[in-house]
Amino acid sequence: MVPPPALVAVPMSRDNACRRVERFPLIAGMESQQVTTSMALATHFIRRELRNRYLGSLSGGLWALLQPLAQLAIYGFVWAYVFKMRLPGGDASPAAVVPFLALGVWPWNAFAESISRSATVIQENAGLIGKVALPRSVLVIATTSSSFLLHGVGFCAILTVLSLLGMPIALIKLPLALLAFAMLYVLALGFAFLFAAVQVFVRDLSQVLAQIMPLWMFVSPVLYSREFLPQAYRGWLDFNPFTFYPEFFRALLLGLGTVEPFVIFRTLMIAVAACALGYAVFQRLDSRFEDFL
């Protein structure tokens, strides 16, 4: 049995207003058994989320596989045969469009889905938060993690399948791609923390996000690449924190274009900064959630 943890400790601050010392601090001054608790909790929530979304639904685990495949098939058909897109500088066959799209669609799905699901997670768990003292950040982490786990597995699976079908995918570099996937996870976590906290106060946020996320996809090189844009607009893509990921995956796995090491470093810094900022906002608002839920 776990020895009794110090559950609540609230020192008095100067202005007599009280701030909670995070009972399960995730970064600083963390005690090992609190980590264990938080980890156990996160694992529980992730498992529940995964089971809920797929095993609980009618078609079961099959849906997890079929849904992105269907999405890719539709995009591939529309882009290759309706819009007659051909890859610049590479293989000019219609089939080559499929791995190109897959490398944009999977990361985007993981990113967009984790953000929009996390945005409402605090609000949806109001009942739990109002009755049990739990580290609320775990809810956000679990939601984001389950989206990335699911789409990460799908990402690996589709690339393996496409490679087996004879597509020119450098499967040997997949571990490197997964490192970039982890960077994307860190970036997504930052947005997830930020939106989850703000949603408690501004209830319209989730509706606004539902409008913004598709727009965001179309200003990112998910279904196209930089070369498709007029020269004058290509530079604008660098202001989009998501741009790096499809470009990196395509350069790494398909050999389309190049990515400077400096850009990789900059992207890493952006992801870490976004995560830290999102978490800071979340922490600042955390103690007031229950007043506004």
């Binding site: 110090a6 559950l7 609540v8 909670r20 109002g130 009755k131």
Partner: peptide, 26 residues
């Protein structure tokens, strides 16, 4: 139980706490 954060003053609770608030424990 730490579900709410105090506006003023302080509260310290030690030991393993089992709480049943508003029936149902969340």
């Amino acid at each position: 139980t730490g579900v709410l954060t105090p506006t003023s003053g302080s509260v310290a609770v030690r030991g393993r706490v089992g709480a049943l608030l508003e029936l149902g424990a969340g």
